[in-house]
Design a protein around this nucleic acid. Structure first.
Length: 265
DNA sequence: CATTCATCCTGCTGGC
DNA sequence: TGCCAGCAGGATGAAT
């Protein structure tokens, strides 16, 4: 489900709620999620950190709880204890409750020591909203790559945070065909990509995230950026720029949307 | 090393 | 109304 913008929204909403809260209890209703309650019980949350699509709850002994939403995961805050649909984990805080709900069970929660968190963060590529995102680093990533540019954008080891929706959106705004091979990109196209990536992600955050079906804010409400999407989920509809019908193709088994007129090979 | 592909899950939607 | 194929915001490890 959530890509970088949606996870960032979750982080921003939960930060003031969870800051300095104690983890009083944790209940796990899904055998796929393996946590030792003793690792985290009675620890205090001192910070929420996001990198790419991952969210870390940093605890007062510098260990952390890592959340990944997978396709359908959400974190819901309630003031009273509730049984929510698809609830997999329930964390009781000193004040309030956080439910991890996840219909498809692709989401993950892991306990990490400080060392393990550092190691894990190193496996992720640069986050387009952090200062590590630079033209030098970006340019270096592109060298000698022959895969389609859409696959390049979605590899979390190179750039962290872009998923299937925003990959299509970024390529539309950059006027690049999603199947174009990275080593065939012109200098201008590379520059454009570099600039458009953070632009689209920031706009999506301002637009409260994209809810096609499952994404929810931490109070259960929906995003609104789905109304601003240029190509994703718009097969057959007219391009907002030129009126040509938006095409849907499969790249690496994932639906990919583009305008055949505005995005040439 | 770089790239592609099947697989993990469950639920919803649209067509017949 | 009921059934079933096809689809879904992701990541991984095995195969090529």
């Amino acid at each position: 489900m959530p890509e970088l913008p949606e996870v960032e929204i979750i982080r921003r909403e939960l930060s003031p709620i969870m800051f300095r809260e104690r983890i009083v209890d944790i209940e796990i209703f899904d055998t796929k999620i393996q946590l030792q309650p003793n690792d985290i019980l009675n620890k205090i949350i001192i910070e929420l950190v996001r990198k790419g699509k991952y969210l870390f709850l940093i605890l007062n002994d510098s260990s952390s709880l890592l959340f990944h939403m997978g396709m359908t995961g959400s974190l819901i805050y309630t003031t009273a204890r509730e049984n929510l649909r698809f609830q997999r984990v329930l964390i009781s805080l000193s004040q309030g409750f956080i439910s991890f709900c996840d219909a498809r069970r692709f989401g993950k929660i892991k306990y990490l020591s400080e060392i393990d968190r550092e190691k894990f963060e190193q496996t992720l590529g640069m986050d387009p909203l952090l200062s590590e995102y630079s033209w030098n680093n970006f340019e270096r990533l592109l060298v000698k790559r022959t895969l389609p540019v859409k696959n390049f954008l979605m590899n979390q080891a190179w750039i962290a945070g872009i998923g299937n929706i925003y990959a299509s959106e970024i390529l539309f705004l950059s006027k690049i065909h999603p199947e174009k091979r990275v080593n065939d990109l012109t200098e201008q196209e590379k520059r454009s990509l570099f600039d458009v990536i953070p632009l689209v992600l920031k706009k999506a955050i301002l637009g409260e995230g994209t809810t096609i079906r499952d994404y929810q804010h931490t109070d259960g409400s929906r995003g609104s950026f789905q109304n601003c999407l240029q190509v994703y989920n718009r097969e057959g509809k007219p391009c907002f720029t030129c009126g040509s019908p938006i095409q849907r193709i499969k790249i690496a088994q994932r639906s990919t949307y583009y305008c055949p007129h505005c995005q040439k090979m």
